[in-house]
Computed example of a mutant assay.
Amino acid sequence: MLRIENLSAAYGEAVVLRGVSLEVGTGEVVTLVGRNGAGKSTLLRCVMGLHPSYTGRIELNGRDLAALPAHRRARLGLGWVPDDRGSYAGLSVAESLLLPPTVGPDPWPMARVYDTFPALHARRDSPSTKLSGGEQQMLALARVLRMGARLLLCDEPTEGLSPLLVQQVGDILRTAKEHGVTVLLVEQNVHFAATVADRHYLLVNGVVAETLDNASVRSRERDLLAYLGI
């Protein structure tokens, strides 16, 4: 579904990504792991078109995205789940869910959204910016699923969440995968990543250093945690 070839990106003269190549197959959950500053979030922003200062090639289902701005990439089925949750000021939970357009052939109906996210159903008339951090994270995930996005770009969805909410995020990602949704996930919690993902790319100084399967992550979890500074 997603193919990235020789991707390099910079902020001014500071090079963040250096010739990154990776693939995410349809229906896969793939994580990017690495230290802060390794370029993980920048890679997601390049894919979404939010950081246009890059070279290389990004393809979605064989289509080169280079000439497309972010809103047109979203229309192709990219769903952006930012690390700041992206709640809409002044809109209720229900309005936030219904505002974005449908972008895929199989959008989640509101009944499924509320069944999967019961806390959002209970708070559906509340201002979205008044939700707790965990509820705002659930809203960010629910919003792109309701749109019918086929590839979710999730930036640190478990950051700052309680263990119970982390477990709920994992359940939701696994449910989305069962419905054919593909996920590219930035995640510092390697233990969590190994419970939801099929494969993992380790980024070191803007370069893909290794591709790891779950068995490798579990056997090397202590070393990875030490490397990541967690």
Rank of each mutant, 00 (worst) to 15 (best):
R57I: 03
A142I: 07
P107Q: 04
A142G: 09
R63Y: 00
E59R: 12
E159H: 03
A111N: 09
L68K: 02
R112F: 01
P105L: 13
M48G: 01
S53N: 14
V103M: 03
L120I: 06
M147Q: 14
R63M: 12
L141R: 05
R112A: 14
R146D: 06
Y114L: 12
P118A: 10
H51A: 11
S87P: 13
P69F: 02
T116N: 09
G104Q: 00
M147H: 07
L153D: 09
Y54N: 02
G77C: 04
D115I: 02
G62K: 00
R73N: 04
T102E: 13
A89R: 15
M138G: 05
L99D: 10
T102N: 06
R45A: 14
L76F: 07
G90A: 12
L50N: 01
S132Y: 03
A74H: 01
R143M: 10
G134L: 05
G77S: 03
M48Y: 11
L50Y: 08
G104M: 03
A122C: 10
A111R: 11
N61Q: 13
S162G: 08
P69H: 00
D84T: 11
P69D: 01
M48H: 03
L97D: 07
L65R: 00
L98I: 04
R73D: 05
V103G: 07
V144A: 10
A142E: 07
D155N: 10
G134M: 05
Q137G: 06
R143F: 07
L152C: 10
H51K: 00
M138Q: 14
C46W: 02
L153T: 08
A66E: 13
S92D: 05
L152T: 10
T129S: 14
P109R: 01
E159Y: 02
Q137V: 04
D115M: 06
P118R: 11
L120A: 10
L50A: 03
E135W: 00
K130W: 13
P101V: 12
Q137C: 04
G148C: 09
M48Q: 10
R72W: 02
G90I: 11
C46K: 00
P82A: 09
H51C: 02
G160P: 05
R146Q: 13
L98M: 12
T55R: 14
P105T: 14
V93N: 10
P52F: 03
L91C: 13
R150H: 12
L151C: 09
D115E: 15
Y54K: 02
S162P: 07
P82E: 08
